[in-house]
Nucleic acid binder design. Structure first.
Lengths: 237, 237
DNA sequence: TTTTTTATATTGTGATCACAAATCGGCAAG
DNA sequence: CTTGCCGATTTGTGATCACAATATAAAAAA
């Protein structure tokens, strides 16, 4: 018998038009994103299939997809697991996020209309509420929604899939960051971004986006906090 | 019967340690990259499976992987095809390439040692030879090799998979660009990049990379050439 | 006790099959 | 000639099975 802990993935409702494949993907993605699967933990097809009550077929395709999105790592043993984080890798991912997203924001700027603005403001309000309530999961979700809404205003946009990949890789760790320093979120960078959009100021928008991203992670990236967490989580190979 | 043309994928040798999956993936990836599959052409699992003499299983996983890498598009019909290009999308992809790769180059700069330099110079020499011989396929391959060698010098690098995704999406079209304007490649931007590395000049390196990328595409992106090609290739839905 | 070896169990890969959704064909009605 | 409808076929999805590679465990040798 394997002595691994019995990974419990809560399964959300299955959409009507949703294939089993997509449903399993959503389950696993969410589990990885919120850090429910510890890094280094081996994910076997049959175990997940049994846990979700499906055949192995949808599971292996979902695993493969997450692997090509860099959310999971396939060793040469053909074993699949959540890659473990290093301080250097974390830094690289953050810098990449900034490069990608400030670029995407600037390219979306000319396309943003009143509808987008309204939606951005609504999301930002909800975010403040969730932040005040200390609901970290909602904060993470709404934050992503805000950024997605901004970048997808560009109808020719092609960078969103890549950005999502970076989010996936940072996912479990940024969530930790939020839980450790919830009340650090004093300056609202989103309002700053909205203001820059209103003035059609590309440079200001880039700065706001970069600051927003950095706010979420610098406390982690620079401090020993990250290393402490990495050590605690990186028990497996 | 379907009236589609009988897509011929040349199958390279199968590696010894290579799974059928990886082999099929390589075949399809190459076919898409060099533009052997016309945009809009529907790719059915069974057809490819028969063409390559394998079961449907490896094919569908390869197709799925290429789809998550944005090299293929899955319609809501569940039909898979090479996405057709628009001028705006092409522009977005080029700008994204520049943003991603100049970032990756700058981040790799501090890690580049004599070994890397030597390899870069060798690749660049071979590239000149291939260019003089008019071998477009070799030029494309060596060009990618050059950039990959540069970015992967950074041991903590995380952007290479994303860059490859953009290459895949631009693949079929940049190849066309090269074939149309082979002799435009007068200024050697790679030498310029190598020189910037030698001086440890981040700004110079960024400029060289951006210029290198732009050189390959501006003649296409700005001109009606691209539109002409898009029209000619975009016959299907 | 430590290391090597051997046997057992588990896992990923690939093939085949059943089924439902979608496509394509012709045919009839406008 | 065009438009809408219905049947035949193709296609993707998901399940199940066989097999080889890998990992795990116990047993044997040092």
């Amino acid at each position: 018998m394997k002595s691994e802990k019995p990974l419990n993935l809560d399964a959300p409702e299955r959409g009507a038009r949703e294939t089993l494949n997509q449903w399993v993907y959503r389950c696993l993605r969410h589990a990885v994103m919120i850090g429910r699967v510890p890094p280094g933990r081996a994910l076997t097809i049959r175990e997940i299939a049994e846990a979700l009550g499906v055949s192995t077929m949808p599971v292996r395709e979902a695993l493969r997809r997450l692997a090509t999105e860099q959310a999971l790592e396939v060793r040469d043993n053909r074993r699949v697991l959540v890659p473990h984080m290093t301080a250097a890798k974390f830094r690289e991912l953050c810098e990449l996020r900034i490069a990608l997203e400030s670029h995407a924001a600037e390219r979306a700027l000319p396309y943003i209309n009143a509808n987008h603005m309204g939606e951005l403001i609504v999301i930002d309000d909800r975010l403040d509420t969730a932040n005040a309530a200390g609901d970290h999961e909602a904060v993470t979700g709404l934050n992503q929604q805000f950024h997605r809404c901004l970048y997808e205003a560009n109808p020719h946009q092609v960078s969103m899939p890549l950005i999502e990949s970076v989010w996936l890789q940072l996912g479990p760790f940024t969530r930790l960051a939020l839980s450790k320093l919830q009340d650090f979120y004093t300056i609202d960078r989103h309002s700053q971004a909205i203001e820059a959009i209103r003035c059609q100021d590309p440079r200001g928008l880039r700065i706001a986006i970069e600051a927003d991203i950095r706010d979420g992670v610098t406390h982690v990236g620079t401090a020993e906090l990250l290393n402490a967490y990495i050590r605690s989580a990186g028990q497996a190979t």
